[in-house]
Each structure stands twice: as C-alpha cells, then as structure tokens.
Simulated assay, not measured.
Amino acid sequence: MRTDSDLWFLDQCSNKQLEFLYNILTLEIDGSYRKRERLSNSLESEIYGTDYYKYSDRIALELQYQSNDVIGDLLRQNLRDYRDILVDIMIVQNIEIMGFETAEQLEEELILTLNDRALGIQDAGIYSMPFDVLLAEAMNEEVMTSPIYRAIVPAVIYISILRLEQTNNQNNTDVVKVNK
C-alpha cells in the first residue's frame, strides 16, 4: 500500500473531521452508498468502525481509488497522486493552474476562487466561507453528472479546508512564539 505524502497530514485530523471525510467518500447526497466506494466494506472499517483516525491512511487511499476514471484502473486499485486529482478538479472548475507547484498552493487557489465566486467578488482574498457554500459553487453540471467528480470534488474541497485550518493554526502558534 502506497500513501501519498500530500495526504499524510490527515493522520493529524480529529476523528470528527475524518468521519466527515469518510461520509463524503462513501455516501451519495441522498444517503445511499456510492457504487464505486470500497471504504465502508474495507477490513479497516470493519475492525476500527468509528475510530476513523486509526485508518486515516485507508481513507486517503479511497480518494485515490475513486478518482480513477477508467473502470480497469478502479478494479486494479490504481492510485492517482493527490496533486494530479487536484489539477483535474481545478480544470473542471475552470481555475487557472499555471504558476502553482505544490498541492498546498493549488488547494489555496481552489478555496480562494470558490470563495470569490460565492461572494461575487474577484480577488477578495477570503478563505472563510463554509464548506456547504464552497461545495455549492463547485457543483457544476459536469461534476453533478459524473459519479467520479461527485465523490472527489467534495472530498478535495474538504481536504483543502482541513489543510488550510491546520496551516493557519500552526502559523498562529508560530506567531505567538515569536511575539513572546
């Protein structure tokens, strides 16, 4: 099993945060299980149940599995790099990706753009819109008609928010240490 270094931070997330991500990856909007999901029937899910933090790496792998657009890759459980998944989502959302090297930079641009669209203001520089508002902005026709994008777009938006929150908390801690 190969894990993606861009998703390692998930093991720092709370059980409640991982539960939300688990639900995004396993459940459709109507509450039924996604046809392509394997997480709810995984050995880790069977053993640890609602202790999601104990299998955060398997939750991350589910995103990589579900992002396969060819059924053969899905069946072979090919893993796509998180950054590649993110680039695909940025393209579907018509967000410029030139000049952004890291997954963190792409995530930040994704969140900023969705916030700008929700507010109707260009370059607002605001990161604070709720997940539901950002998701509503991202759910265009191409996303809604694709079983792949319906699963991975919400997951990537949520992962982006989690990383931004974690980065902001670490930055705030660093600022406090410097000011003392």
Rank of each mutant, 00 (worst) to 15 (best):
K54R: 14
Q105D: 10
R80K: 13
K180G: 11
Q64P: 00
Q93R: 05
R80W: 02
N171W: 12
Q170P: 00
L134I: 04
Y53Q: 14
N78C: 10
Q93I: 03
L39Q: 06
G72D: 14
R150T: 14
L112M: 11
V153G: 00
R36A: 09
I91M: 07
A151W: 06
E37N: 13
N179S: 10
Y149C: 01
L162M: 14
S32C: 06
K180V: 09
A155Q: 06
I157A: 03
E108C: 07
I89C: 05
K177D: 09
T50E: 14
Y22M: 06
E165L: 08
A136T: 08
L79D: 00
M1F: 11
G49N: 08
S67P: 01
A136W: 02
E44K: 08
L110T: 02
A155G: 05
T145R: 12
E141N: 11
G31C: 04
E37Y: 03
L135D: 04
E109F: 01
F9I: 03
N15E: 09
N169L: 11
E165N: 15
I126G: 01
G125T: 04
P154W: 05
Y33F: 15
I152A: 00
M144T: 11
D69Q: 11
R34M: 06
G49K: 14
S32M: 09
E165Y: 09
L10V: 04
C13R: 14
E109M: 09
I159H: 03
G120W: 08
Y158A: 02
T3D: 09
L164N: 10
E142D: 12
I159F: 02
K177R: 14
C13V: 05
M98Q: 12
L75V: 11
S128R: 07
E44N: 13
I85M: 03
N115S: 14
G49W: 06
I157D: 02
C13T: 08
E142T: 10
Q17N: 08
V153F: 01
